[in-house]
Design a protein around this nucleic acid. Structure first.
Lengths: 301, 301
DNA sequence: TTTTAATTATGAGTAAAATTAATAGATTGT
DNA sequence: ACAATCTATTAATTTTACTCATAATTAAAA
């Protein structure tokens, strides 16, 4: 088996130019090194060094291994370095899972000051989960879940970070802008844009269209918010998004916002964590910072 | 120390989902695995797995290590695979060193049929050497040296592959085309293009200009043959190159060729190898193929 | 609940492997 | 030719890893 020590030997002997010097660098006796080198060559079935008098040089196989060493050794020592930091609590990765497409914009606003405050902590955002966000949290694939659907389960903690209203976004000159609020019927002749997720996870269906058994003229999915709103702005259809997000975009694009139903659709965003992680300082810090980035206005009267 | 076995364990336990299953995969007892895992965590100072009942899941540190494992393990097993092939003589890399800039074009013609004939052998071409081509050969950095300057030394073998004439390349309508051959004086008012190497390795200087103590109007260096001859073709200067190379280009560009001195400059290209490598089959095969790609015409009368 | 099957953890003994010390052999430069 | 320096080898020692036997824990079945 090709072990780490073998790569270190190949590297050290090449760099130092001699077995004796390499032995010093590796903190073993010259004898030990000689033994190990011989055994390595025996196991590989190939010469790794050419013994020309008292100088050692790499063979072709040796050069190949040196190349492997130069790639693998930094990987390993880097890992050790980092693990040491993790062990001392100096460093970690905050792995955030997102189950709320439009929240991405909000998340970015929280992440950037967080990275400044916690220089030793990396942030990683994931959006796809084989067994859902809660599964990812339980399986230690992520450390924090951003979701509109808290799923209370022992071992997990959910807390709301902000309330918002889900509204209909339409072009500025759209006929619905005349109404105080939209009704399900109003979408029967409209093209609806949503993110590409199943319908039972879209509030526009579960809380608005389905109760009145209305199906829009057409349903198209778009990956990104930018493109979606570009499409809406130029009259290709309508979309359902958080009010704060729609209002942010309406300064750049000719968009209007219409309430969904007489009393509006109220939503909350929750942050979920594992119970056992409550002692991770940077995790609690992130949640605290997230609270301070609440978007104003839940449902205004 | 983070060893290969640790990465294999992390990988296996994650994939199999249990310690016992992983032990089977790694061909050790469950006990051995348990001991090793514990020792690893002790050494790292961090938990790698979360023991939740009888299921093991990776911690954050564990996930990080899994990532390292996924990068490092293929590197190592790939290396072993290849070393095995090298040991059985099924595979190798022919590392060719070039000390003859224009020969690159010739080399390409030899390499391509070689790669077809020897599918298990890779070819690598290097052009820069800290201690010259001969040093690189002796240091096992390369296995074959292509050079116009054989440097006979014990342990090395040089053999000529082809003769050629070094000629002056000028624009098609150049005044020198009228002459049977160029004299050093003729270059006094010319711009000379060469590859960027020291003057004592340029035949145009050592064998042509220096004897008559002539310095051209200007001396510019160019990396590639293509650009150099483009420059010559549009009247920016002249260059000294092998006749076969110049004639190849003169079908595409408006170029002419003029002999250097009354009797021309005769050159040979040699292939150098280490004496001890004479038993490497693909190396001798390459040299044999190289002979069959001789360029015609040394110095024609 | 008790039982059963399966999984992980632990302790002690054993086998294997790596390391060392001592020394011989080889090479280089003065 | 000699001293200095390097590598190789042998035998003894230490260290390490592994296994066996068994305990402890967990999850599901009776």
């Amino acid at each position: 088996m090709l072990e780490r020590i073998h790569l270190r030997i190949i590297h050290a002997v090449h760099q130092q130019g001699s077995l004796t010097a390499a032995a010093k660098e590796l903190c073993v006796t010259q004898s030990a090194l000689s033994h190990t080198m011989r055994k390595l060559e025996d196991n590989l079935g190939t010469a790794v060094w050419v013994r020309d008098g008292r100088s050692l040089r790499l063979t072709q196989a040796g050069h190949y291994l040196l190349n492997i060493a130069n790639r693998a050794l930094p990987l390993l020592s880097g890992a050790e370095e980092r693990l040491k930091q993790i062990a001392m609590g100096e460093r970690g990765t905050l792995r955030i899972g997102m189950e709320c497409h439009p929240c991405y914009q909000w998340l970015l606003k929280v992440v950037s000051p967080f990275l400044e405050t916690w220089p030793g902590v990396d942030v990683d955002v994931k959006q796809k989960f084989q067994f859902g966000g809660v599964g990812a949290l339980l399986d230690y694939e992520i450390d924090l879940l951003v979701t509109p659907d808290p799923y209370f389960k022992s071992g997990l903690v959910f807390e709301p970070v902000f309330d918002y209203e889900q509204v209909l976004v339409v072009p500025k000159d759209h006929k619905l802008t005349a109404k105080k609020f939209a009704q399900a019927e109003d979408l029967r002749d409209q093209v609806l844009f949503t993110y590409p997720v199943s319908k039972d996870r879209l509030d526009i269906y579960t809380q608005f269209l389905n109760p009145d058994q209305v199906i829009p003229k057409q349903h198209k999915t778009v990956e990104t918010t930018d493109i979606m709103l570009q499409m809406v702005a130029c009259g290709r259809g309508v979309a359902a998004l958080p009010r704060w997000l729609a209002e942010e975009y309406s300064t750049k694009l000719p968009l209007s916002v219409v309430r969904l139903g007489k009393s509006g659709i109220a939503k909350q965003i929750y942050l979920g964590t594992r119970e056992g992680d409550s002692d991770i300082d940077y995790l609690s810090a992130f949640i605290k910072m997230a609270h301070s980035y609440k978007h104003p206005v839940a449902i205004s009267p």
